[in-house]
């Protein structure tokens, strides 16, 4: 059964090997000629003024949390979708109950303004 995963294993080895090979070869071959323009972080764009290791807004966390919750919700829908014909009406009703409980949370998030950025 595990033989089916041999192509994936080869893919992983090739991808990792290519990344390592590229890093080593560019390290060996690249010329070292630096100047001020070359060392700038952006060719065109605003120069960073502060350290990137600063505290970020909690809105990012909220968006990530909502993403993970609806991600897990979708995960529960995959096996349901596969055997939907066998479960018939019973399966449809239980999924509606499942989704209804989460829609309550979705409405709450919406009305609290958790989905708005400003």
């Amino acid at each position: 059964m595990l033989e089916a995963y041999v192509p994936i294993l080869i893919f992983v080895f090739v991808a990792t090997g290519f990344a390592i090979f590229t890093l080593i070869m560019s390290g060996l071959l690249h010329p070292e000629r630096y100047n001020k323009v070359k060392l700038e972080p952006y060719e065109c764009g605003i120069e960073p003024e502060t350290d990137a290791r600063d505290r970020y807004s909690i809105r990012y966390y909220l968006v990530a949390m909502l993403f993970v919750i609806f991600d897990v919700e979708t995960v529960f829908m995959f096996p349901w979708a596969v055997i939907m014909d066998e479960l018939a009406l019973f399966g449809l009703i239980e999924m509606i109950v499942f989704l209804f409980i989460l829609v309550v949370g979705y409405v709450y998030a919406w009305r609290k303004g958790a989905l708005e950025w400003a």
Binding site: L62, M65, V72, E73, F76, E94, L99, I101, L102, A109
Partner: peptide
């Protein structure tokens, strides 16, 4: 799927309640 939506129906529905609590908790905190 067959096990989750027949034998383990109640845990499956409780899971949605757990997700709801997590969502509301995150919003209240943030």
């Amino acid at each position: 799927g067959m096990l989750l939506y027949t034998n383990y129906l109640i845990p499956f529905e409780v899971a949605s309640m757990l997700l709801l609590v997590a969502m509301i908790g995150a919003i209240v905190l943030a």
